[in-house]
């Protein structure tokens, strides 16, 4: 039990929250980077390798497209269905292989990215499926290559929806980042567990909740603003991305 009246309590709290916030932003930020780098192409491929898609027959070989589609579907479904708390523990050997340790914020990036990539890939899939097939046809009639269609039509035209989808993804990464705090992953989650739960400091607990709430609010505000900025439709962009289930 920590006594709020004890000397040094408030500076200590401030210090702990500062470090915790820094760690959270670090692991979430890097995880988001990997999520976009891997999830975006993954989502594009998920849509593209479907029947009638752009990459239906890679190298002119139709069965290859079907196999790729099945494999990606399997991976994404697997990644989405394993509860994070189990995934996190199950990934420990892999994390150790990649980072060298499974403790700390850097190590936490691995399970965060692994859980977020399939999630974001689904978001990308939804966003890209919303692009009017007539636009693809128009680009094809102009003689566009498949990559030109992805880069000049599919991604730019779904940008608003992609941004909103990314925002939802980042929110759940923040959510999961608190969970890695329970296994010494650092960040605000660890502050809440160590001080708020194990040492009964309600002030720590409340402070962490407020901080995470502020981060999520700012993120959502930024995403909404960006989505509107990139949407040139007359109606304001509205979020058509499904809210993720709570875990």
């Amino acid at each position: 039990m920590i006594d709020p009246a004890a000397p040094g309590f408030w500076p200590g709290l401030f210090q702990v929250l500062l470090v915790g916030t820094g760690e959270t932003l670090y692991m979430v930020g890097v995880a988001v980077l990997f999520t976009v780098l891997v999830g975006l192409p993954l989502g594009v491929l998920l849509v593209g390798t479907e029947r009638g898609g752009l990459f239906e027959a890679p190298f002119g070989y139709r069965p290859l497209g079907r196999v790729i589609n099945r494999v990606l579907e399997f991976i994404v479904n697997l990644g989405r269905s394993v509860p994070f708390i189990i995934l996190m523990v199950a990934l420990i050997p892999f994390t150790r292989l990649v980072v060298g340790t499974f403790i700390g914020s850097t190590a936490a990036i691995v399970p965060l990215a692994v859980v977020a990539i399939p999630f974001f890939a689904r978001m990308v899939e939804i966003a890209i499926k919303e692009v009017d097939s007539g636009l693809i046809e128009a680009a094809e009639s102009l003689g566009a290559t498949r990559w030109q269609i992805v880069a000049k039509v599919l991604v730019p035209e779904s940008l608003s929806t992609l941004i909103l989808g990314l925002s939802t993804t980042v929110t759940s990464i923040i959510n999961f980042s608190a969970m890695v705090g329970t296994v010494a992953g650092g960040g605000l989650g660890q502050v809440a567990i160590q001080y708020g739960y194990q040492r009964y400091s309600t002030i720590h607990m409340v402070a962490v909740i407020i901080l995470i709430f502020i981060i999520v609010m700012m993120l959502q505000g930024l995403a909404t603003w960006l989505a509107r900025r990139f949407s040139h439709r007359t109606r304001p962009a509205r979020s058509r991305v499904a809210v993720p289930p709570a875990i």
Binding site: G60, S141, L142, G143, P156, E157, R233
Partner: peptide, 25 residues
């Protein structure tokens, strides 16, 4: 071939009933 076809399509412009313009451009 698919690549030759892409080049050949550049000689053939096409306009559509629903315009098919990129909303972001």
């Amino acid at each position: 071939s698919p690549d030759q076809l892409r080049l050949a399509r550049r000689k053939i412009g096409m306009v559509f009933q629903h315009f098919n313009l990129l909303a972001g451009r």
